[in-house]
Amino acid sequence: MSYRDIVVHLTLDPRNAARIQLAIGMARRFGARVSGLYTVPPPNVPYYMGEYIPTELIQKQMDEAQTASVSAHTEFMATCASAGIEHRWLSSELAPVEALRLTVRASDIAIVGQPDPNPADPASVPYGTDVLPHELALQAGRPVLAVPHSGSVTEIGRRILVAWNGKREATRALHDAMPLLRSAESVHLVTVGPERKGRTLLAEITEHMQRHGLRLETAIVDPAGQKVGMALMAEAQARQADMVVMGAFGHSRLREMVFGGVTETILSSMSLPVLLSN
């Protein structure tokens, strides 16, 4: 299986360019088409305005949104065209998760932004993007690649760290990442201990991946009192990984408490692109 259809989320935020670049890099590698899906933010009226909302304010915001959408469109079309990548523009007024999930289900992978972990002004966070990577991963049925909020991302997938705990979500992530894993120089399957069932599967997974033509390096890491998510990020750095693959855990209460925390820790502290699957 290869990625032939890539959806990239674009909205009113300064990181569109980084996501487009990443999408183009992947499209080039896999011979894919890139669909830019722009979500139009609704007017954002501060709560202290009470019931009276001047129409000029709404009009001004809508005009701004319109201008931003036009410039995002121009940027996306021009960048893809000059890269020689097949592309198309889609636009939606739905919230990002709702807009993306339908398109992504008939695609191979979605590229979205990591929400700003420390926004200076919460109102400046683009509408609906605060929950985007995690929620979309739960609802899309396809892998979601979250791009860090800051820093530059040029080439990914040379050295990949796969977070492995033997669970359903990790199984999904591993298999969904296969096209990237196959073109990687090295793949590191890392379990953060204390491991029980996860460990017994390490040998089987290694063998299974070997049949897919992949050689894995496996490691069991002692979190040494750290949060599991932090230990994983540290391990990724120590192994000079340029991306992380992991299961997105969610919704069921108990699992959320146990594993959802890891997903959230990673999403708020990630410095590398993270592929999430559920």
């Binding site: 339908l102 289900r105 008939a106």
Partner: peptide, 15 residues
Amino acid sequence: NGSREAARAVHDAMP
């Protein structure tokens, strides 16, 4: 039916 599960099934059946 455009659901998450259907998306999973289609992609899992790709081979």
